[in-house]
């Protein structure tokens, strides 16, 4: 990509972000709530695809990190009288450390082990947290009482999205991003050109853990009442995967192309046919695998390339 193009996409990104930041001015309660959901998934899916896009490791750990973030805010504020912002500062660090440990244990092995490990991770943390809560801290409800409105949280998430996009932009043009692309192509070659493959993967995975925990912490005031079964819902991980793959992980802005329609679809299904939401997720996975293996963005680029060739 030339420097001129890069500058252009930066300007475009900035304009879109400003537009996104204006949503609270026009949106009412219902649409504000949907916008908040979209902002949340945009951050989660984009940071997910920074790691999983180039490496093809399917991480299902998002719910675990997200839950850790939300739960820490809940327990910190209810059980230890901590300030919301203090907990927001602590949560992502814990998420990052957790991701780091999981990364060094599983990322040196093949992709299957990693998927399986992350698959049950949220569930395991949930059962452990419930157990600790029931036996040691007493099963009190965890309240997150702040005077933040949905619009406030939304703005924080948009800022976080901007940071994630900038980080992604920087990673993509750095040696680290290049290393990840090589790893995704052929890990053996990657090692033989001098890349410490485990370290590169762990760095990115740690980053995604940091971001997911931060999102979980920031959005906690939205739910007011935190319980392990809610914040550690494994479904969240799958939705993030679907959204990111639906949009396409080949481009930094790919995931958001999947986030917006899928979030709206889910909203519609949950409101009207809530018993079918699992089935819809299943169909979404199948559609991605069989019809959109490179996501909507990849498909559009493919079509454009074809048209480009035929008009020449």
């Amino acid at each position: 990509m030339s420097h001129e193009n890069e500058f252009k996409s930066l300007v475009w990104g900035a304009v879109l972000l400003l537009l996104a930041a204006c949503v609270p001015l026009v949106a009412n309660g219902y649409w504000m709530s949907i916008a908040l959901t979209i902002a949340m998934f945009t951050v989660l899916a984009t940071s997910w695809s920074l790691f999983s896009g180039p490496t093809h490791y399917i991480s299902l750990a998002t719910a675990a990190f997200f839950g850790v973030g939300g739960y820490l805010v809940g327990t910190g504020m209810s059980d230890y009288n901590m300030d919301f912002w203090t907990m927001v500062a602590i949560a992502p660090v814990v998420g990052a450390v957790l991701a780091f440990l999981i990364g060094i244990a599983t990322l040196r092995l093949s992709g299957v082990y990693f998927v399986i490990f992350t698959l049950g991770l949220a569930e395991m943390i949930r059962t452990m947290v419930s157990w600790i809560q029931n036996n040691f801290t007493g099963s009190r409800g965890l309240y997150v009482l702040t005077d933040l409105t949905e619009a406030d949280i939304y703005i924080y998430l948009v800022i976080l999205a901007a940071v994630v996009y900038l980080a992604g932009w920087w990673i993509n043009r750095s040696r680290l991003g290049f290393a990840l692309r090589i790893i995704g192509n052929d890990e053996t070659v990657a090692r033989h050109v001098g890349i410490n493959t485990a370290t590169s993967k762990v760095i990115l995975f740690t980053f995604s853990g940091f971001v997911a925990a931060l999102v979980g912490a920031l959005i906690a005031p939205r739910y007011t009442y935190i319980e392990p079964n809610g914040v550690f819902s494994p479904e969240l991980s799958f939705i993030v995967v679907i959204m990111a793959l639906l949009g396409g992980t080949g481009r930094l802005w790919g995931p958001i192309v999947g986030v917006i329609p899928f979030a709206l679809l889910q909203e519609y299904i949950n409101a009207n046919y809530s018993s079918y939401s699992t089935l819809v997720m299943g169909i979404a996975f199948l559609v991605i695998v069989y019809f959109l293996p490179r996501g909507v963005v990849g498909r559009i680029e493919q079509l454009l390339a074809k048209r480009g060739r035929s008009t020449w």
Binding site: Y276, T278, L279, G282, A284, F285, L286
Partner: peptide
């Protein structure tokens, strides 16, 4: 992995 996840969810839904 993705395809069988899809089947898994679809079967649960059914």
């Amino acid at each position: 992995i993705l395809a069988t996840f899809g089947m898994s969810f679809a079967l649960v839904g059914i």
